[in-house]
Write a protein that binds this DNA or RNA. Sequence first.
DNA 1: CGTAAGATGAAG
DNA 2: TTCATCTTACGG
Length: 187
Amino acid sequence: MDKLYAELEQGSLVAAKALLGWKLVHATPNGRIAGYIVETEAYHENDPASHTYKGKTKRNAAMYEGAGTIYVYFTYGMHYCVNIVAGRKGVGEGVLIRALEPVEGIEPMKVNRKTSVISNLTNGPAKLVQALEIHKGYNGTVLGHGLHLEKGIIPDEIVQSRRIGISQAQDKPWRFYIAGNLYVSKS
DNA sequence: CGTAAGATGAAG
DNA sequence: TTCATCTTACGG
């Protein structure tokens, strides 16, 4: 975890790769729900697609709080997504968690997602937030309490490609995922 | 104030 | 391909 923290501090590009394979765990009052991170995207201040491109606002403030902070944002009138903030305090960058491989708490995930199809539980940024019961209350808090990371798997092969769902900087290859993993979101 | 667009997902 | 649904940000 210390090595990971050092990598998170180096910025979103390094962090996005370093986070692959780590287990994202939400310790809820009713038990643990967790999965391996299999897909990420990096965002930073000089990136037109980033929420921090035009500077600090009330919404994106958590992205300036330094490595290890959690940024939860609301979008499209109905969805939440999570980021692990990267870089040093004062710099606005982070890593969007786009997909997980379900590991613990599969049953509650099925209930939360209203489906029993395992491959459809956490293969998208808003889906995993719903499956793990992550809520906006975590925005601006630090990893380590309810929501935290634990050692997971060592990725076999990492693929780098274009990001998904953005209208700016579509040519930048700042998305990373574990090759061949069944739970990577569809593009 | 008014309004447009958004790091999505599910259904048709 | 369309639509659901709403907060934030920015212009007037």
